Computed example of a mutant assay.
Amino acid sequence: MKIYGVTGWKNAGKTGLMERLVNEICARGISVSTVKHAHHSFDVDHPGKDSHRHRIAGAREVLLASRHRVALMQELRDDPEPPLSDLLARLSPVDLVLIEGYKRDSHPKVEAHRAETGNPLIAPGDPTIRAVASDTPLTLDRPVFDLDDTAAIADFILSEVGL
């Protein structure tokens, strides 16, 4: 599996770019999975549902399955967050895994940047960021794309990973 990341500060446009990239790349006949890092507590389950009751009762893993999808919820309890490499190893094989977040990991990335956030660029100090997708023109030592030019960003990523 090839991997490529989309990173950036909060409200930089990462999720919208990820969504558009998945759509664009899948439309080209390439299979894609995603990994999204969350810095906050999150829950994909709902109180009162059977699977939630299993987890609250103490189950370490709850696998929920239907003819439409399968979801595996794993409770870390007091264990540390698994590294990205361990999470990638759990995925079924696909052509490309797009990773949102994980800005400190060593995989290649595109940085999403919106000027209105006032955040500095990460790219100048991070060689793993191979390009920047921005809503404002920038002069950098690597490619800069318009944040909304999904096709060009997809072309760049696919070229980078050899797909």
Rank of each mutant, 00 (worst) to 15 (best):
R69E: 14
P93Y: 06
P83Y: 10
A38E: 14
H52I: 01
E61H: 14
S33P: 02
P108I: 00
Y102E: 09
L91K: 12
S106V: 05
A89I: 04
P83W: 12
R60T: 09
V6C: 01
D146C: 13
D78V: 06
D149L: 11
G5T: 05
A59G: 08
H113L: 01
S134Q: 00
N23F: 12
G125N: 14
L64H: 03
A151H: 14
S66P: 07
V97E: 07
E81Y: 08
R20P: 00
A154F: 10
G125M: 12
H37V: 04
S85K: 14
L138H: 07
P127I: 01
D149C: 10
L72S: 06
P137N: 05
A71K: 09
F156P: 01
L163F: 11
D50G: 03
L84C: 11
R55G: 14
G162T: 12
I25N: 04
A38D: 15
L64Y: 01
E24L: 05
P47C: 07
G8L: 07
L138I: 09
G118L: 10
D155A: 05
T128F: 14
S134R: 02
L98W: 06
A115G: 02
E81C: 08
G125V: 04
A123K: 00
L121E: 07
A115C: 02
I129N: 00
P137H: 08
S85Q: 14
A133R: 00
I157S: 02
V94P: 00
A152D: 07
E100Y: 06
I129C: 03
V32N: 04
S134D: 06
A12T: 13
T150M: 02
D43V: 12
S159H: 15
G29K: 10
L96G: 05
P82N: 08
D50T: 05
D50C: 08
D126I: 02
A151Y: 01
D86V: 06
L158K: 07
